[in-house]
Simulated scan of single mutants.
Amino acid sequence: MFSHGAVPGYRMLLCAIVAFGLMFAEHRFTRMDELRAQLSTLVAPVQWVVSLPSEVLTWGALALSDQRALVEENRRLREQLLTLSQRAQQTAHLTAENVRLRELLRAARRDEMPYITAELLSLDSDPFTHQMVIDRGRRDGAYVGQPVMDASGLVGQVTAVSAFSSRVLMINDASHALPVQVTRNGLRFVVQGSGHYERLNVMHVPDTADIRVGDRLLTSGLAGRFPLGYPVGRVVSVEHDPGEPFARVIAEPAAQLQRSRHFLLLFPPPEPRPGEALWDESFSVVEPPQELQR
């Protein structure tokens, strides 16, 4: 397009003006989000067509070897593994919580999180962002801000939704941050992406804070975006700089960000039905010991 003569220079200038115009329109007008969602819907068939040859070859090889039944069973077992992993990931948090809150007998009931499974369609080719596209969209109930998990931990959150696909911002992206807490002692911090798949930054950790290498970080649920008690990462480095108020703490993500292809999209727990008790009425109120009443 820009290969011959002086005219291509004007073409390049025109393209630059159009690009700046589009960036200005996206910054100033909210309807650009709707336009982007519609364009994503239009691009969805292209993504499907691009992946079609590999899908056809895979299906043909399996048909020739008469292994379709095994593949279907493998798919069911993989979804079952994701389901069991999603339930098991809260075990560490519940154990620590029971130790700290054993005396609280009148506790609120915790319902299981509804979810749907999703599969990876593509990864963003931009080296400065860490985003991916999955095969669940508006028709499946996906929404902006929805948490995304894999079998090991938190992957990220949905940032854009079209009819047939969704874009996910991963937790290691430099623009992503979320509140977490340490399993061992309940200390709360903010984890921010570093731009690298294998590293997360734990922000503003006081130099005297009780945080150690090996501590596991879980979602704290304080921001209201991510549910409580899901694995985020593990502390791998704590550096103290004399004279500095904050320590430099690095964690590695719990999720397999570079290898996972199957994910869970979590939904908020259902609202209680009218007349349903918010507390477990089977528990009784226990009077505090007399020593504490004095």
Rank of each mutant, 00 (worst) to 15 (best):
D210P: 00
M149I: 02
E281R: 15
L77Q: 11
F267I: 06
R106Y: 15
G137D: 07
R138N: 05
L123M: 07
F267S: 04
L64D: 13
G221T: 00
A174F: 10
S282N: 15
R259Q: 14
A255M: 02
A6Q: 12
T91R: 08
A255P: 03
G221C: 02
F29T: 14
S40P: 04
A177K: 07
V213L: 11
V235D: 01
A209Y: 01
T208C: 08
Q90V: 08
D126E: 08
F2D: 10
R234F: 07
T208V: 14
L154Q: 08
L39Y: 03
V161M: 06
P147F: 05
R78F: 04
R102N: 10
P268T: 04
P289G: 13
V213G: 09
H262P: 00
A96P: 02
D111C: 04
A88L: 13
E281F: 00
P270S: 13
A63D: 12
M113H: 13
V43W: 07
R139T: 09
Q131G: 07
L217F: 00
L222W: 12
L121C: 04
H196K: 14
V236S: 10
L264Q: 01
Q258N: 07
R78I: 08
A44T: 05
A251V: 06
P147W: 05
E103M: 07
I134S: 03
M149K: 07
Q90M: 07
G275L: 08
E198Y: 14
N185E: 09
D150R: 05
L52N: 09
F128S: 09
V202W: 04
T117Y: 08
V168N: 02
H262M: 11
R28C: 14
R102V: 09
G195E: 07
R75W: 11
S40A: 14
V148F: 03
Q192C: 06
V202G: 02
T183W: 14
E271S: 12
G156E: 03
E291D: 14
H130L: 02
R102E: 00
E112K: 07
T159P: 03
R36E: 09
V235R: 03
I134C: 05
